[in-house]
């Protein structure tokens, strides 16, 4: 095989593109779980974001309208989940799974007339001379706005959870909803807000697939990205910066194995395809073992809250 065919510059640049959908979805889910809610419907919200974003972009001609619609679509799905689990107190695991199945089906229905069309792509952010720098220019300064938005979101979520009072309240609600309630915080309201944010992020991630990465609509095009996002949240032990590492690691191995396949590596294709999953899980497990015994799961994760008074 010919390893020289693999260009490091292109590899890094394309891993950021490959990782962005998962990064967005995982970041949103992390906030949801920090508030003590387990939404397994990430995949369903992503694919709904992918289809609503694609349809809106085609109909309006603007990819930005597409991304906006995707965020709204994802959040609407999430609020459906929120209504069922927070108001009607249904089981979070079952409801999340149902949301995924529902999203896959509904998106296929909505997207029927849009198969095979190509959407307008987002332009790159023009950073002038910066993009002309060798290596760094291509790698860091030649991307579309959503890649930068996702990185800003990582920093924003990190700072929000760490430094703001609202972030503290959100963590408190996820840690012990009874104590938070006793102190007079609105557990359900906080959780609903977090759920909607998580849905919007998942929707954006889905739209990034259908509008930038592919860019086309096909049924079931998320192909398990939502599940990877869920796994990354757990293995990143609920920390924004580790979610970034996990998502980029996964994206990197995905791109690398594709490159290896085209370079004709003498490794079974199936093993190469499985490599991103295996390596990501392995690395994040090692991180979380080193980090702390027992991980850092919010103590009231997936527990239903019902104010008894």
């Amino acid at each position: 095989m010919d390893l020289s065919a693999i260009s490091p510059t292109l590899l890094v640049a394309s891993l950021m593109v490959a990782a962005t959908p998962i990064l967005l979805a995982a970041l949103g889910e992390m906030v949801v779980e920090k508030a003590g809610v387990l939404n397994l419907g990430v995949e369903g919200m992503m694919i709904m974001g992918a289809v609503t974003g694609f349809v809106a972009a085609i109909e309006s001609g603007s990819p930005w309208a597409g991304f906006l619609a995707a965020a709204i679509g994802g959040a609407a799905m999430a609020l459906l989940f929120g209504f069922l689990t927070q108001v009607l107190l249904s089981n979070q695991v079952a409801t999340g799974l149902a949301l995924t199945l529902f999203g896959l089906g509904l998106s296929a229905l909505i997207g029927q007339g849009y198969v095979g069309i190509k959407a307008n792509s987002l332009g790159r952010v023009d950073l002038g001379a910066l993009s002309d720098l060798p290596f760094v220019g291509r790698v860091l300064f030649g991307h579309d706005p959503i890649v930068y938005l996702s990185l800003l979101l990582v920093a924003g979520v990190w700072a929000f959870l760490r430094f703001t009072r609202a972030g503290l309240i959100l963590r408190a609600v996820g840690e012990s909803h009874n104590a938070a309630h006793a102190l007079g915080y609105h557990v359900r309201r906080v959780r609903m807000t977090a759920i909607a944010f998580g849905g919007a992020c998942a929707g954006l991630g889905g739209a990034y697939l259908s509008l930038v990465r592919v860019p086309q609509w096909t049924e079931g095009m998320t192909a398990g990205a939502g599940w990877i996002a869920l796994a990354i949240v757990v293995f990143a032990s609920w920390r924004a910066e580790r979610v970034l590492v996990g998502a980029y690691l996964f994206g990197g191995i995905t791109v690398l194995q594709l490159n290896l396949q085209t370079a004709g590596a003498r490794v079974p294709v199936e093993l190469l395809s499985a490599a991103p999953y295996l390596v990501t899980i392995l690395v994040l497990v090692l991180i979380s073992i080193r980090a702390r015994r027992g991980g850092a799961a919010p103590a009231d994760l997936a527990r239903p809250f019902h104010a008894s008074t």
Partner: peptide, 28 residues
Amino acid sequence: ARAAGVAMVFQHFSLFDALSVAENVALG
């Protein structure tokens, strides 16, 4: 109630294990 000057120490602690002392105080 807190604004009116009523404070309460709960029977079952209303504390958050994974947060620091200062964060717990701030929440109250």
